[in-house]
């Protein structure tokens, strides 16, 4: 049985893109970023299955997942700092770049 996961990879990527484009809540933007990262990880693992190099692609996937966690941690710290100043999570309130 032939397996093709590319439609699912692109569907997940599209959902993440849709979430990033349409939502204005910072928490929803985090979810969009996460969905993009998960689609990328799935694509990397699927590339290893297709190319018959599962060990190499798994090591790359580990790097991607750990950097994804770092990005999420810094993003959540930014969200917390922004909410402490503005009492809001709406990106429309992020008009002022001066500290």
């Amino acid at each position: 049985m032939n397996i093709n996961l590319l439609p699912f990879v692109f569907a997940l990527f599209g959902l993440g893109l849709f979430c990033l484009l349409t939502r204005r809540s910072l928490v929803k933007l985090l979810i969009g970023l996460e969905l993009l990262g998960k689609a990328t990880t799935l694509a990397i693992i699927w590339a290893g299955v297709v190319q018959k190099t599962p060990a190499t692609t798994q090591s790359i996937a580990l790097l991607v997942i750990s950097i994804e966690a770092v990005v999420v941690a810094v993003y959540l710290a930014l969200v917390y700092a922004f909410h402490r100043h503005n009492q809001s999570l709406d990106t429309d309130d992020m008009r002022r770049l001066k500290g």
């Binding site: 996460e34 998960k38 990880t41 693992i45 699927w46 290893g48 299955v49 599962p54 692609t57 798994q58 996937a61 580990l62 997942i65 750990s66 994804e68 966690a69």
Partner: peptide, 14 residues
């Protein structure tokens, strides 16, 4: 997909 290491890492971190 026979990628258990990535699966465990995704489960614990993600």
């Amino acid at each position: 997909l026979q990628a258990p290491v990535a699966g465990v890492f995704e489960l614990s971190v993600g």
